[in-house]
Design a protein around this nucleic acid. Structure first.
Length: 180
DNA sequence: TTCAGTCTTCGCCTTACCTCA
DNA sequence: CCTGAGGTAAGGCGAAGACTG
């Protein structure tokens, strides 16, 4: 890597106290354009760009490295925002489900045996309960109730996990549209 | 085929410089 | 003019992969 001085005419000048290079608008625009096409550099492309921009190859390389870092940071910030919102809606959903369970538990009064509309068999009273949303008698079983509370526990756990994740940087995989 | 040494590139963290409010 | 914050080019270092003898 001894090519430093050979072309330090570009903008930087001598290697005395570190001087800050400012890229011109044209240089930045060209680099941006190139970055849009491909986020990585191969030696050929790097050399060509350096030639075109009148910069050292190393400078082009550094610019791409920093640019990748910047876009990663931006992406991470966006992910963070998304997670915050998702966490908020999960918390809200959790609250709603908790309320729903409370209501279901409160109306645990078993209605008398009813004849099923499907097969005209008498249904066991314990399999019947009232749907708080549609206000109609449904065949929700105790197992279904358990399912709801399992869901709540799951949502709560996920929310807790997420809340700790939000503080950190990256997120490996976006959760698929969770069961609603 | 395996292995050690070298080179290059990358990501990450940090530093130094510049600009601007 | 001074100052602190924010942006960014560049330095340093370790890891990973390609190449070679």
């Amino acid at each position: 890597m001894e090519d430093e001085e050979e072309s330090c005419n570009a903008n930087g000048g001598a290697a005395a106290p570190r001087k800050k290079l400012r890229l011109t608008k044209e240089q930045s625009a060209l680099l941006e354009e190139s970055f849009r096409q491909d986020h990585t550099l191969n030696p050929k492309r790097k050399e060509a760009m350096a030639l075109q921009l009148k910069l050292r190859a190393r400078q082009v390389e550094v610019w791409f490295q920093n640019r990748r870092a910047r876009s990663k940071l931006k992406h991470t910030e966006m992910e963070c925002e998304y997670l915050k919102r998702w966490f908020g809606s999960l918390t809200e959903q959790n609250r709603r489900l908790q309320r729903e369970v409370e209501e279901l538990r409160a109306m645990k009064v078993a209605p008398p045996t009813v004849i099923s509309s499907h097969n005209y068999e008498p249904l066991h009273a314990s399999t019947l309960t009232m749907c708080p949303r549609c206000e109609r008698v449904t065949t929700t079983t105790a197992a279904a109730l358990d399912k709801v509370s399992t869901k709540i526990t799951l949502a709560a756990t996920t929310a807790t996990t997420l809340s700790s994740k939000v503080g950190t940087s990256a997120l490996q995989s976006r959760p698929s549209s969770a069961a609603c």
